[in-house]
């Protein structure tokens, strides 16, 4: 991997990690309302996949969506502004963490319905096919969503229509409190792809290089008009399901052990240095830059006005 790509992947992952730390802090300070779901631990998936996407390619995201949003090059200030219920937020405070969308960058939105984004990405891919463009769509979703009916219906549709779409299943070992072992009688979710007649690839979601490589092939295949791919990335979420989750369904040892073993951001730092792609000093400089941007984003959000009152019906209907 060349230096520029490696450093960019690192920067994106480090940004996601820092964003989750900062939003957790803000939540603790009672500045964020509702719920947030941390993507810490899963950064390599969004970073490795979105590195291949242009601004006119589409993604659908999940309740755990901050990482996808950042990897799709969202503005941090507007993300924080959304979490803080400000007018400058991506959804003008109407959506919050679970509904951030950035259509200018092809992000068709996080989704509070588990599996809700899978058919929508499929429809976006249909648009590309219909208009004859080389755009692609990516549906990010969890292991839990893979057991929804939308998964089945959408993968089948995309396969029969050869749609340019990637189904990226983030297997973080849990759907809320349910471990994957109790939700699947198979070890390998990617094998399901065969039943739909599309390639299925299982990848180590800790290793951004591996994700990047698998996604490169799947995106190229989609752009060539050869159809969809299912990618299942093995991963682990460092935090609870949501901020404040008591995690009664996990042992402390399990969590500590995984966190230690499974840290894609620390890993990337290590191999980038070991491969001589960048020095520690260069990596530190990236960290400082990311942290500074983060604080700029938080400051922007905190200084911006609260969301304006709802206008009905103008906001509810496009034409009225």
């Amino acid at each position: 991997m060349d230096k520029a790509t490696a450093l960019d992947l690192y920067r994106v992952m480090r940004t996601i990690r820092r964003f989750e730390q900062r939003s957790t802090q803000l939540f603790g300070e009672n500045k964020i309302w509702g719920t947030i779901h941390s993507y810490a631990g899963e950064e390599a998936i969004a970073a490795g996949v979105c590195a291949h996407l242009r601004d006119d390619d589409w993604i659908t995201s999940t309740h755990r969506g901050h990482g996808h949003c950042i990897a799709k090059r969202a503005d941090l200030g507007r993300m924080f502004a959304e979490l803080l219920g400000r007018e400058a937020g991506y959804c003008r405070g109407r959506g919050g963490s679970m509904h951030i969308a950035d259509t200018s960058k092809g992000n068709l939105g996080a989704n509070g319905i588990v599996g809700g984004g899978i058919p929508i990405a499929t429809g976006a891919a249909l648009t590309a096919k219909q208009l004859g463009t080389d755009q692609v769509a990516v549906a990010f979703f969890g292991d839990g969503a893979a057991n929804q009916g939308t998964f089945h219906e959408s993968l089948n549709l995309a396969a029969i229509w050869k749609l340019p779409v990637l189904y990226v299943c983030e297997n973080n070992q849990y759907a809320e409190s349910l471990p994957v072992k109790r939700a699947f009688a198979t070890e390998d979710i990617a094998k399901r792809a065969e039943g739909y007649g599309m390639p299925g690839v299982r990848v180590d979601g800790r290793d951004v290089r591996a994700v990047y490589g698998v996604a490169a092939e799947a995106v190229a295949r989609a752009r060539r008009g050869e159809g969809p791919t299912l990618i299942v990335a093995d991963s682990y979420r460092h935090e609870g399901h949501y901020y404040g989750d008591p995690r009664k369904y996990q042992s402390k040892d399990e969590v500590e052990g995984w966190r230690e073993r499974f840290d894609p951001v620390a890993d990337a730092r290590r191999w980038i240095a070991e491969d001589g792609l960048a020095t520690e000093a260069e990596l530190d400089a990236i960290d400082r830059k990311v942290d500074a941007e983060m604080e700029k984003g938080v400051a922007f959000a905190e200084a911006s006005p609260l969301a304006s009152p709802i206008r009905i019906p103008e906001e509810v209907y496009a034409s009225h």
Binding site: L108, G116, I120, T122, G123, L126, T127
Partner: peptide, 9 residues
């Protein structure tokens, strides 16, 4: 759902 995605795009 595919209709929703197609309409959005």
């Amino acid at each position: 759902g595919a209709g929703v995605g197609a309409a959005l795009t």
